[in-house]
Amino acid sequence: MRSLKAARTSYAVTVYVLLTIGSLAFLFPLVWMLSTALKPDSQLFAYPPQWLPRPPMWGNFKAAIEYFPFWAYFRNSTIVTVLAVFGQVFSAAIVAYGFAKLRWPGREVVFFLVLATLMIPSQVTMIPQFVIFTRIGWVDTLLPLIVPSFFGGGAFNVFLFRQYYRTIPREYNDAARIDGASHWRIFWQIILPQSKPVIATASIFAFLWTWNDFMGPVIYLHSPKNFTLPIGLRAFQQQTGTEWDLLMAASLIVMIPVILLFFFLQRYFVQGMAMSGLNR
């Protein structure tokens, strides 16, 4: 009995030690980021480097925001993110209904086509898309970053919604049909209200993707009045050198919405990841 207990204890100790080392390794970069963000100029290039900023320069955060047009970029990032997330989630929710709750000839073939588009690297379409958006005068507007989201919401989101809808019993649909409800009403009043978890999950993924997107803004946005935050962070890298303390402060500020969302909605992050991995 004793040896079994000892084995269990040593097992627990091993797990805790390994996890502690691992999580320290995962936390260090963030700690380092915060430490750098708070360092006075004189300490940035101290050798060997110091862990603790002395004194902590809380003013760096204010200075970072004032270093570049933070609020204008924040506004653009917010506009793009809110609209793109709404577009992706809403249109994927609608499209997935057509695949999950309606029977029609060719459905499986078309759905296969949806999944097949996941295989095409975005680089293939990037160049012609740029040419098309150029011709219709959308370059240097937020439109190329927003409008495509409203058309199908991305194959991955359609897939997520379809999988979820299929777990909603058919009886709801059948009962509503008997009552003479249109499919649009069923979607709007019965299916959508039951789909909050998948809406949350898809929104989170869409949010992460849009908020952090860099290649799209680099290609399509030219004038600072249209810049989003990821582009704005580049301002700290000047030809003559980098303002590391302010840059780290600004990067942290840009990450804060993601971190907040993560802590409040971690359940949905996990669910979303799990769904994407398991529902094959």
Binding site: F130, F133, D140, H222, P224, R234
Partner: peptide, 20 residues
């Protein structure tokens, strides 16, 4: 309009290509 040195070149090129 002044743009950050590192991104200026790509911006100018793509904007020129975009006719703007």
């Amino acid at each position: 309009l002044g743009t950050n040195f590192w991104d200026y070149w790509t911006r100018l090129t793509t904007a020129t290509a975009g006719g703007i």
